[in-house]
């Protein structure tokens, strides 16, 4: 090994240790009993899963997990369907005003969502969607970033194929369904991973539109936990934290490569 490589490895290991420390620390605390946490140990002397049992016992963690899963899957499907339909229109159908509509789609990315949350809350309330998965998911179905990402991919499909299918009398929708979607698996996966991650991790909106235990998502569950008496029981809190980060960490590790390529493509081209 050259001196240079040794230096790079040293820096890599140190950086990884710093970046991963909070996650490892949380995991370690989740295996300790209360006394050990107070002693300030870094590594549990007698690791135990008691905190995990307690987390499911004392708060409806399972309900929260199911709610988050349902909402994240709904938004994922909604965003993928709506984005791919819109991207298809932008790439394959020619009509007046298309460029303008595309500009407007891009402009939506500049509206900070928080600036619209008050009327959105009132809309969802008047629809009777408070404490429902619809209120948590439908407002996020339209996604300019997703449309943009898929449009980049659809543009690589030769236009001659589309024209040939038109001449052969194949309907637009069949072309979309049987040709465009199957060759676009990678960006569709990227978008799905992105949608799932961001929705699962959403905080402010679920805080506004849910106020019952049956409707809450995991992120709000964690807030509840932290703000009531369980808060002093750090082991249990950390067990819940570990439970809610595992699904997204696994998904991230599995989809990291696609995500990186997709996000970069969306960023540059």
């Amino acid at each position: 090994m050259t001196m240079r490589n040794a230096l790079v490895y040293t820096l890599l290991v140190l950086s990884a240790a710093v970046m991963l420390f909070p996650i490892g620390y949380a995991f370690s605390i989740s295996l300790m009993d209360g006394g050990e946490v107070l002693k300030g140990n870094l590594i549990p002397e007698e690791p135990s899963l008691a905190n995990y049992v307690a987390a499911f016992d004392r708060i409806p963690l399972l309900t929260y997990l199911v709610n988050s899963l349902v909402v994240a899957l709904l938004v994922m499907v909604g965003q993928v369907v709506l984005s791919s339909l819109a991207a298809f229109a932008f790439v394959f159908i020619d009509f007046k005003g298309k460029a303008l509509i595309f500009m407007l789609f891009l402009a939506t990315m500049m509206v900070p969502w928080e600036a619209t949350m008050v009327p959105n809350f009132l809309t969802v309330q008047s629809l009777g969607w408070l404490n429902s998965v619809w209120g948590l998911s439908v407002p996020f179905f339209a996604l300019a970033f997703g449309t943009f990402l898929l449009r980049q991919q659809f543009k690589t499909i030769p236009h001659e194929m589309y024209e040939a299918s038109q001449i052969a009398g194949i309907s637009r929708f069949r072309f979309f369904w049987n040709v465009v979607l199957p060759v676009s698996k990678t960006p569709l996966v990227t978008l799905s991973v992105y949608s799932f991650l961001t929705t699962w991790n959403m905080y402010l909106w679920p805080l506004l539109v849910t106020n019952t235990e049956q409707a809450r998502t995991v992120q709000i569950g964690i807030k509840q936990m932290q703000s009531n008496e369980i808060a002093s029981d750090w082991g249990v809190v950390m067990a819940a934290v570990v439970m809610i980060i595992i699904p997204t960490l696994l998904l991230l590790f599995a989809g990291q490569k696609q995500l990186q390529e997709g996000l970069t493509q969306g960023a540059i081209k």
């Binding site: 909070p22 905080y203 995991v218 992120q219 964690i222 950390m238 960490l249 991230l252 990186q260």
Partner: peptide
């Protein structure tokens, strides 16, 4: 890239 998979809520608690 791990923190991209971490929610703001979970990270804040840690």
């Amino acid at each position: 890239s791990a923190t991209m998979g971490m929610s703001v809520a979970a990270s804040s608690v840690i």
